[in-house]
């Protein structure tokens, strides 16, 4: 804690203005990066969250320090933290193929709110450290995050009429060091003389020359058709 800032930590017209300006600034700094990427919560949302949290914290201080009410100065601030969790949950979207979008936005919004609380409580240096770390996480580590090597996923549709084919195909995948993420088997056509025909949808993860692997699958006994999706 930096003691030379102590005169600025109380509540008077000047420090209220200072707090409002600083919360706008911190909210904007985080929001600009999100806006630039055209995410659901942009510039204004982040400023609003930061300013609102700042107001809530200031009101908590005001009740105790100015009105001399026997209250806990951190109670209002504390509820802001769980309340923003709700808002964050609202920004999360579950897409049709069961993946999640908006989680980073939710996390950023939540942390921006806590930065606002620090400003409202007069803990300016913590707010500045927090904003700096958030910006480092969003820009620098965002780039790293995009470069983290993820083995790609492939989905292969396989039609076959001999039940051992699937086993052979799966063995081929394992030999190629692909890991099987998901497997669904369906029976598509049945007639008395032809016997059953099956289709399997296999999701694989790994680094492999796909064209080559598909060719090998096609040549297998009992495999009718192979397609990569």
């Amino acid at each position: 804690m930096l003691n030379f800032l102590n005169p600025l930590r109380g509540l008077d017209a000047g420090t209220v203005v200072l707090r409002m300006l600083l919360s706008c600034l911190c909210g904007a700094a985080v929001g600009v990066e999100r806006s630039a990427k055209n995410r659901p919560a942009g510039f204004r949302t982040h400023i609003l969250v930061c300013v609102a949290a700042n107001l809530a914290a200031m009101t908590g201080l005001y009740l105790y320090l100015e009105l001399k009410m026997p209250s806990d100065i951190s109670r209002i601030s504390a509820q802001v933290i769980s309340g923003l969790g709700f808002i964050g949950a609202g920004t999360i979207v579950v897409t049709r193929n069961l993946s999640v979008k908006g989680l980073t936005t939710a996390a950023g919004l939540w942390t921006t709110g806590i930065v606002g609380l620090a400003i409202g409580s007069g803990y300016y240096e913590l707010a500045v450290i927090g904003t700096a770390l958030v910006l480092i996480a969003e820009t620098f580590f965002g780039m790293i995050s995009a470069r983290i090597h993820r083995p790609p996923e492939y989905t292969v549709e396989l039609a076959y009429d001999e039940k051992t084919s699937l086993e052979n195909v799966l063995r081929l995948c394992k030999d190629q060091r692909m890991s099987i993420v998901n497997l669904r088997v369906r029976t598509i056509a049945v007639s008395a003389d032809d016997g059953a025909q099956y289709t399997a949808t296999i999701t694989l993860r790994g680094n492999v020359e796909t064209d080559d692997m598909l060719r090998q699958m096609r040549m297998m006994h009992g495999v009718v058709a192979v397609a990569a999706l």
Binding site: V100, L103, T104, A107, G108, W110, T111, G113, I114, G130, L133, V134, A137, E138, F141, G142, I144, S145, I148
Partner: peptide, 12 residues
């Protein structure tokens, strides 16, 4: 949830 999400939440 990727790298950034965990970092942001930890800071908060």
């Amino acid at each position: 949830a990727g790298l950034r999400t965990y970092m942001l939440i930890s800071i908060g």
